[in-house]
Write a protein that binds this DNA or RNA. Structure first.
Length: 818
RNA sequence: GCCCGGGUGGCGGAAUUGGUAGACGCAGCAGACUUAAAAUCUGCCGGCCUUAUGGCUGUACCGGUUCGAGUCCGGUCCUGGGCACCA
């Protein structure tokens, strides 16, 4: 039996009950069967799903269901990126412990995901705030600490002097604390770092092989890693053993150095300021600039001489050393050689302070003129005014100067990266505790494996903004694992990017209480298809790649990269702008699901745009998707009996020409849709489904017509089932097809249906369409040309003209050139 | 400034990768059913000309390659994104 009208709520409950009872999406390892691991980026449990989640997870679910229908053993898990600042903010605001708030949100969002019918293996659900999860993160960290890949150093943070706490960059608004409104200060505190720079070369090189990733993401990562080749050169300091070391990528300009510039934190600057109050004041001014200062570019370039000089390694000249606010202590050596003639920034600085501008490079191309009164000449070229190096090209000079300095012990080649080590300490409460104990005698000591996890107390109260565990002696007072003396735990927690860097691996074995990962991870990894927002193109995806290599080098897995293919879905827009609460242009997916059902929402999300492009939300478009499902339903209702009774393998050769042509169109459309599925262009798959239904609705008659309805519907339902899984499940049952749709074989076009005995060709004259001709499929080229020339409208354009050439494109067109 | 994407009807977007531009849908217009409305169904729908057959024009702009260009090449303009005192 089948209901007369489409009732999505009832239909969707029926399908979901079936999947739940049958445990349809539970999977286990089946060696020998092809696996497919499909993963969407897990959500932060903010409270409720937004439309971006729905789009992301629908794309993932469509791919997972498609791969499953192709016969693969498909894993599609889901979990929660559960640590993070919003839970603390909510806790402070509503006086609810972050754990409580988080678990409530998870439970609501889980039921929302289930209502949309995503085919997740819920038996593998992970919440990163659970000790069973983060204990392994703590464990790995202690291993990295032993290997020297985790280390401690001072780093600058935003300090709120009123709330007496560290602020995240986003908590600093216009240089003031978001709650206290106090002017934020810079403060250096000791923090933990992971040595991602040790993997910079591999992280960069591997990108060349990752052809399953969008080029845009690979480029962004390459730029972020920022490899450069240059020279580290030492300028001697008179009367001192250690000289001033600088890094340059342009050693060919070395003879044009007119001053040196060092960062405010550079030891030479600090030392020179000791007897110079003016310089001390300048260094302090530089210190006051916020860590979060976004627009360094607009900052005025300022400097001050230190009164010191260094010796040029080739000419032996004395070069003055300046402190400059644009030199970064964290890149290279914190000091640069300044060549105003050939570097625009040095040029502006030299102009401002009246320093000499010397030309040492001339254009290689004689036609090019330069004017050092206007701007620096930054291209490469030929060396001039450079003593024994004059006349060399920039490239040759690089080598010659590198060799010369190396022979003198004054310089060596060096590769530098823009990438910095990953600071993982956060002075927050709602995160995984860093498993380190600080002992007065032994220093930083890792918590022994037998004492893990270091559990974050969940039953706490916020007194102000500061992390509660920083005020809990029962948490931090402990004894040193090494000497047994009194000691204190770290009260900082991990950056939440730590949890999201390896969750994809833990889904393989979420219940293993003895190991971080076991052999099941080797079966499932790497992830075959990863889906998420482009906003994670750099940080999350780079950290996860780094972590994968750490796990590999710990011997837990053998693959080099975590995600074979990556799909970055576009943004969801409304009225041409990104949806946001402040713009008031948000759409609540729950309301849409209540009104139209999940299939309509899924269908529209797939139909409105290709997955990787931005999607313009349209309320009338959603209604249109609902109408299509309604037409599908009423067609099935109308022909229910006929389809059930129609022959499964009719003799199509007996069909009328019209019917054969309609059948051909259905199979052709299927063929195109299969191609579109394989390239993840789901919007045209939906189009194809609509075309098939439109064709079926034009079919007239009984018997063979019913057979075509039967065949056409079985194709249409299966094609659409990854996108609209509920309605297709119920209609498949109602129309009496074999098995359940999710276990049915994927449709393939019947080659016999695609065969045509005559073809329609377009006829062009000089590239313009002038008519169409009907020729038999096996017609010779000469016969086609002859038929084309007899077409009446074509004749109008070729009479009285000499035909110079006729081009015949098989199955497509004829072009007559005259 | 450097590095990636994009510019196609009123709108979202197709075009099997050099072969009928505008599939499919949204909006709109006209009609059928209805006392009426909604829902549903049918037809039309880039612009200009034409009774129609049909013609001209058209994929940001200029030029090129080709029998043939939305697609390839050179230049220009606009636009979205990423990076940016990185020495």
């Amino acid at each position: 039996m089948i209901e007369e009208s489409y009732n999505p709520q009832a239909v969707e409950a029926e399908a979901q009950n079936y999947w739940q009872e049958q445990k349809t999406f539970r999977v286990t390892e089946e060696p020998g069967r092809e696996k497919f691991y499909c993963l969407s980026m897990f959500p932060y449990p903010s409270g409720r799903l937004h439309i971006g989640h729905v789009r992301n997870y629908t794309i993932g679910d469509v791919i997972a269901r498609y791969q499953r229908m192709l016969g693969k053993n498909v894993l599609q898990p889901m979990g929660w990126d559960a640590f993070g600042l919003p839970a603390e903010n909510a806790a402070i605001k509503n006086n609810v412990p972050p754990a409580h708030w988080t678990y409530d949100n998870i439970s609501h969002m889980r039921s929302q995901l289930q209502r949309i019918g995503f085919g997740y293996d819920w038996g593998r659900e992970i919440a990163t705030c659970r000790p069973e999860y983060y204990r392994w993160e703590q464990w790995l960290f202690t291993k990295l600490f032993e290997k020297g890949l985790a280390y401690k150093k001072n780093a600058t943070v935003n300090w709120d002097p009123v709330d007496q706490t560290v602020l995240a960059n986003e908590q600093v608004v216009d240089g003031r604390g978001w709650r206290s409104d106090a002017l934020v200060e810079r403060r250096d505190i000791s923090q933990w770092f992971l040595k991602i720079t040790a993997y910079a070369e591999e992280l960069l090189n591997e990108l060349d092989n990752m052809d399953g990733w969008p080029e845009a993401v690979r480029t962004m990562q390459r730029n972020w890693i920022g490899r450069s080749e240059g020279l580290e050169v030492e300028f001697a300091i008179p009367g001192q053993e250690q000289g001033l070391r600088i890094y340059t990528t342009r050693p060919d300009t070395l003879m044009g150095v007119s001053f040196m510039a060092v960062a405010a934190e550079h030891p030479l600057a600090v030392e020179a300021a000791k007897d110079n109050p003016e310089l001390t004041a300048f260094l302090e001014e530089c210190q006051r600039i916020l860590v979060s200062e976004a627009n360094m570019e607009t900052m005025e370039k300022k400097g001050m001489p230190t009164g010191r000089t260094v010796i040029h390694p080739i000419t032996g000249e004395h070069i003055p050393v300046w402190v400059a606010n644009f030199v970064l202590m964290s890149y290279g050596t914190g000091a640069v050689m300044a060549v105003p003639g050939h570097d625009q920034r040095d040029y502006e600085f030299a102009h401002k302070y009246g320093l000499p501008i010397i030309q040492v490079i001339a254009p290689a191309d004689n036609g090019q003129t330069i004017d050092l009164d206007q701007q620096a000449f930054t291209d490469k070229g030929v060396l001039v005014n450079s003593a024994q190096f004059s006349g060399l090209s920039s490239a040759a000079a690089f080598d010659a100067i590198a060799d010369f300095l190396a022979s003198q012990g004054k310089g060596e080649r060096r590769v530098n990266y823009r990438l910095r080590d990953w600071g993982v300490s956060r002075q927050r409460y709602w995160g995984a505790p860093i498993p380190i104990i600080n002992c007065q005698e032994c220093g930083a000591v890792a918590v022994p494996e037998s004492d893990l996890p270091v559990v974050l107390p969940e039953n706490i109260e916020f007194q102000g903004v500061m992390s509660p565990i920083k005020q809990m002696p029962e948490f931090y007072q402990t004894t040193c694992p090494r000497c047994g003396g009194p000691a204190e735990r770290e009260t900082d927690t991990f950056d939440t990017f730590m949890e999201s860097s390896w969750y994809y691996a833990r889904y393989a074995c979420p219940d293993d209480e003895q190991h971080m990962l076991d052999e099941r991870a080797s079966y499932w990894l790497p992830v075959d298809q990863y889906i998420g927002g482009i906003e994670h193109a750099i940080l999350h995806l780079l950290y996860a790649r780094f972590y994968h290599k750490l796990i590999r080098d710990a011997g837990l897995i053998d693959s080099a990269e975590p995600f074979t293919r990556l799909l970055t879905q576009g943004m969801v827009l409304k009225d041409g702008a990104k949806m946001s609460k402040s713009k008031g242009n948000t759409v609540d997916p729950q309301e849409l699901i209540d009104r139209y059902g999940a299939d309509t929402v899924r269908l529209f999300a797939m139909y409105a745009a290709p997955p990787d492009q931005s999607l313009e939300w349209s309320d009338t478009g959603v209604a249109g998707s609902y109408r299509f499902l309604g037409r599908l339903w009423s067609f099935a209702t109308q022909y229910n009996q006929a389809i059930r009774q129609a022959p499964v393998e009719p003799n199509w050769t007996q069909a009328t020409k019209t019917l054969r042509s309609q059948r051909r169109q259905i199979h052709q459309t299927l063929d195109q849709a299969l191609f579109d599925f394989s390239r993840h262009q789901f919007n045209t798959v939906v189009s194809a489904s609509m075309i098939i239904l439109n064709t079926l609705r034009e079919v007239e008659g009984n018997d063979l017509a019913d057979a075509l309805r039967r065949e056409g519907m079985s194709i249409l339902l299966r094609l659409l089932s990854p996108i609209a899984p509920h309605i297709t499940h119920v209609l498949w049952q109602a129309l009496g097809y074999e098995r359940v749709i999710i276990d049915a074989p994927w449709p393939t076009p019947d080659p016999a249906a695609l065969v045509r005995d005559s073809l329609t060709l377009v006829v062009q004259v000089n590239g313009k369409v002038r008519g169409q001709i009907e020729v038999s499929a096996d017609a010779e080229k000469a016969a086609i040309e002859e038929t084309a020339l007899t077409e009446p409208n074509v004749q109008r354009f070729v009479t009285d003209r000499t035909i110079r050439k006729i081009i015949v494109v098989p199955n497509k067109l004829v072009n007559i050139v005259c």
